[in-house]
Simulated scan of single mutants.
Amino acid sequence: MLLQEKNNITPEEYLSLERDSEIKNEYFAGEMYAMAGASRSHNKISTNIVRVLGNQLIEKPCSIFSSEMKVKIEAIKKYTYPDIVVVCGNEEYDDENNDILLNPVVIIEILSDSTEAYDRGDKFSHYQFIDSFAEYILISQYFQKIEKFIRKKDNTWIYSKYEKTEDTITIHSINCQLSLSDVYKDVNLSEYHMRRNQLKLKT
């Protein structure tokens, strides 16, 4: 969730503030946006994915990073924090701090009520300015549902959706597989629905 903004700052000012900040902030067009904390389900899904894909990438020239790694979209001077990012081959960074990745191949976002529209809309559009970006994966933390977008050579995208426990997704750009049973292992999806039903009863 984007909580607040600080206006009219330069990228250099943003980086100076961000590296000393106790919370994560995105940056775009002179504005600095604070990010909200993640739920247990969000964190569990992220941990599951990093574990499963990390094991498959051990013998490959690829690295996987969780939400502490910033990504810079050079074409529009935007700094953002994907939930999970995979890079292969030569890792390109913005500076000697090696904390701002320039060439992600796979980006994974875990959707929430407050971020879903952004992740599907502007954020996805902005990611597409990155030449190396090949696959985009959106994961619901409330329902058993994963969506995948694969970039074609003409810069159009192929969409697919997975909702069954036995479904397995192939991430072609890194030659890895991700099953829904692994992604949602020990994730209590009923918590969200119980909370939503309780709110409905109060209204």
Rank of each mutant, 00 (worst) to 15 (best):
L2E: 04
K6S: 06
E12D: 10
E12C: 08
Y14P: 08
Y14L: 04
L15Q: 02
L17H: 14
L17M: 15
R19D: 11
K24P: 00
Y27I: 02
M35I: 03
G37H: 07
G37D: 01
S39H: 09
S39K: 03
R40V: 02
R40L: 06
N43D: 08
N43I: 05
N43Q: 14
K44E: 12
K44F: 11
K44H: 11
I45F: 13
S46T: 01
S46F: 08
S46N: 11
N48V: 04
I49H: 14
I49W: 13
R51D: 03
V52Y: 03
G54A: 12
N55A: 12
Q56P: 05
I58P: 07
E59T: 13
K60C: 06
K60A: 07
P61M: 05
C62I: 00
F65S: 04
S66P: 03
M69F: 09
K70I: 02
V71M: 13
I73T: 04
E74S: 15
E74N: 08
A75R: 13
A75Y: 01
A75N: 06
A75T: 04
Y79Q: 10
I84R: 09
C88D: 05
C88F: 07
E92G: 08
Y93F: 15
N97V: 01
N98C: 03
D99F: 09
L101D: 01
P104C: 14
P104G: 11
V105T: 09
I107S: 13
I108T: 03
I108Y: 06
I110L: 15
I110G: 14
S112W: 15
A117G: 09
Y118K: 10
Y118M: 06
D119F: 08
D119G: 08
G121W: 11
D122Y: 14
D122I: 12
K123M: 12
K123G: 11
F124E: 05
F124M: 10
S125P: 00
H126A: 11
Q128M: 09
Q128L: 04
A134W: 00
Q144R: 15
F149L: 13
I150D: 00
K152M: 01
K153T: 00
N155S: 10
Y159T: 02
K161T: 03
K161P: 02
T165F: 07
E166G: 11
D167V: 10
T168D: 07
I171W: 04
I171E: 01
H172K: 12
L178Q: 00
D182P: 07
D182M: 14
K185Y: 07
N188T: 02
N188I: 04
L189M: 09
S190N: 14
E191N: 09
R195C: 10
Q198E: 07
L199W: 07
L199V: 02
